[in-house]
Design a binder for these strands. Structure first.
Length: 272
DNA sequence: CGCCAGGCTTCTA
DNA sequence: TAGAAGCATGGC
């Protein structure tokens, strides 16, 4: 991949193993929206970004070199060689098939609080409704940003009463959001510090939040805290693991378990 | 109407 | 300590 700084934005030429639709709409993030012209639009932190994919490249519309280095390079995990990951996990035949199907997926390095909160909302829920709740959360408590809203901070949400959260229609998850917001904003759960801990310690800490069990913790580790070896097991992955892997991921995939998980999740759901 | 949705907490044996 | 029930809401 070659990075070109142009007047209309930052262009990623020959962006291999990077398919926008697969990456932005595979269930790891809930706030990227397709545009009518094939582009995608989303907000990360306090920055709104529009993305367009043409033949071999991807344009980060309007971004400059400083944006690229301070934010987008990390967010899209562009320092990782996914071709190398695919080669490694493809030592296993079953993973080779899944990786081939999902070869354009990248793991997004999302903001820790947004990730934790989003996956708390995701439990026992379906993706359209998850997106709806998160959209209302941002519209009600986030700040205006371009044509949309930022994800509200833990501090902001910690102030909210039960009645104020009611319009989210988050159901039993509202109390979990409050507890997470309080623990994160008070520093009782120090999200920034967690990425420096061993993964198991970080996981244990996350699970002190009400409504955070193994699955939500693992999603937060993987998508929000940079633990690429985290392996979230939802109903789909559990089914695949039981049916095809005797419950255990092959050794060749262990260092990249989170990426392998996305390939398996993607291919399992594709068949549906 | 019943079932299910990228689960977790609580209750029960 | 394992297993099932209960949990809000909405789409089908």
């Amino acid at each position: 991949m070659k990075v070109i700084y142009r007047d209309d934005g930052v262009y990623l030429e020959n962006a291999e193993n990077f398919d926008l639709a697969a990456t932005l709409d595979c269930g790891q993030a809930f706030r990227w929206e397709p545009l009518t012209d094939g582009g995608w639009q989303g907000i990360v932190g306090s920055r709104q970004l529009t993305l367009r994919q043409d033949g071999g490249g991807i344009l980060l519309c309007g971004a400059d070199k400083a944006d690229y280095f301070s934010l987008w390079k990390d967010y899209f995990d562009l320092d990782r060689d996914y071709g190398e990951v695919i080669r490694a996990v493809s030592a296993d035949e079953r993973l080779a098939r899944a990786a081939a199907a999902g070869s354009g997926i990248r793991i997004l390095r999302q903001q820790p609080w947004e990730t934790l909160c989003s996956f708390i909302i995701s439990q026992n829920n379906n993706i359209p409704r998850i997106k709806g709740i998160i959209s209302r959360l941002c519209g009600l408590f986030g700040e205006k940003c371009g044509t949309g809203y930022t994800f509200p901070s833990a501090e902001r949400l910690a102030e909210c009463s039960e009645e104020e959260l009611a319009p989210l229609r988050a159901g039993f998850r509202a109390g979990y959001i409050s507890d997470a917001a309080r623990k994160v904003s008070s520093g009782e759960v120090d999200l920034k510090g967690l990425s420096a801990l061993p993964m198991d310690a970080a996981r244990e800490r996350l699970m002190t939040v009400r409504g955070v069990g193994p699955k939500v913790a693992d999603c937060t580790l993987l998508f929000g805290l940079g633990f690429i070896e985290a392996f979230p097991q939802d109903v789909w992955i559990k089914r695949v693991m039981a049916e095809s892997f005797n419950g255990r991921l092959p050794d060749c995939a262990l260092p990249y378990a989170g990426i392998a998980q996305q390939y398996l999740f993607y291919s399992a759901r594709e068949k549906k």
